[in-house]
Design a protein around this nucleic acid. Structure first.
Lengths: 145, 145
DNA sequence: ATCTTTGCAAACTTTTTGCACCAAT
DNA sequence: ATTGGTGCAAAAAGTTTGCAAAGAT
């Protein structure tokens, strides 16, 4: 349940010494409700509908806090703003350079590479902060416009 | 020879209808000389030493032009400014989230993933615009500071 | 002479910060 | 009553743009 999710997270926040404000609850709601990869701006807009005074800086600050608690993570999908998602939603992103479409892929797809990087370079790839850019199936079909 | 490289590129530019100015030649020199991944800012600083009037916007515009000609490419290694490199210098980057170090890896390392993405998702990964973030060998050793 | 390219200043986008006020504990 | 969170405005940081002057062809 999405309600539960919000409650669970506010409890977590309280545990860590954080305070629960209506802004925060509303931002969490928006984050839980958005089944996608919202930007800070989109979250702000969403919450402003019911909470007009909310400022973008509050959203950024709260998202930072949530990142510190390892609850959310942000990814750069391309040149635009970063997008946020829950850390337990583990997957990776294929971003099309041409049309900007985002395809989620299960992390199993990249496990091979992950292992190789550890073996050969001692590098622990962070699969969450990782977007693969390229050209999606649809754009590959189209003649170069 | 690096001189040759600059000549070859100016010739290429001329072919495409571009004009060769002293700024452009100097930017190309700086790009050829830098054996790394210079940012637009670093290139500007470099060239300004001998060409003080140069403006950052000129560098950006010229780099855009070079990208259009598929001579250079830019990569986002992390949160900072983009870095530029010649497209024929094909390699990939491992960027450490903690210390920011950049490890170049041969593209052979990622060929497996590349093939998998084509087979499973019809997605043509663009290996040049692709940085893998994570934790490098050295930082993995250190206790979390 | 023409048409690019340049330098400049100013806008723009995304994110961060300083500060006084407000609100949760 | 504390202390942390908020709104605001302003500053960063990186990049782009409009424009008139300068320069390459």
């Amino acid at each position: 349940m999405k309600e539960d999710r919000v409650e669970q997270l506010t409890a977590r926040l309280k545990d860590e010494g954080g305070r629960i404000t209506s802004s925060r609850r509303a931002i969490l709601r928006a984050l839980v409700d958005s089944d996608g990869h919202p930007t800070a701006e989109q979250l702000t807009a969403e919450v402003k509908a019911t909470h007009p005074a909310l400022h973008e800086s509050t959203v950024y600050r709260f998202l930072d806090e949530l990142e510190r608690l390892d609850v959310v993570d942000h990814v750069h999908l391309g040149h635009g703003p970063g997008v946020y998602h829950f850390t337990d939603d583990v997957h990776n992103h294929l971003v099309c350079d041409l049309c900007g479409s985002v395809t989620e892929i299960p992390s199993s797809v990249i496990e091979g590479l992950q292992q190789k990087l550890i073996n050969e370079f001692g590098f622990e790839m962070e699969p969450r902060h990782f977007a693969v850019s390229g050209c999606c199936r649809d754009c590959a079909k189209k003649p170069t416009t």
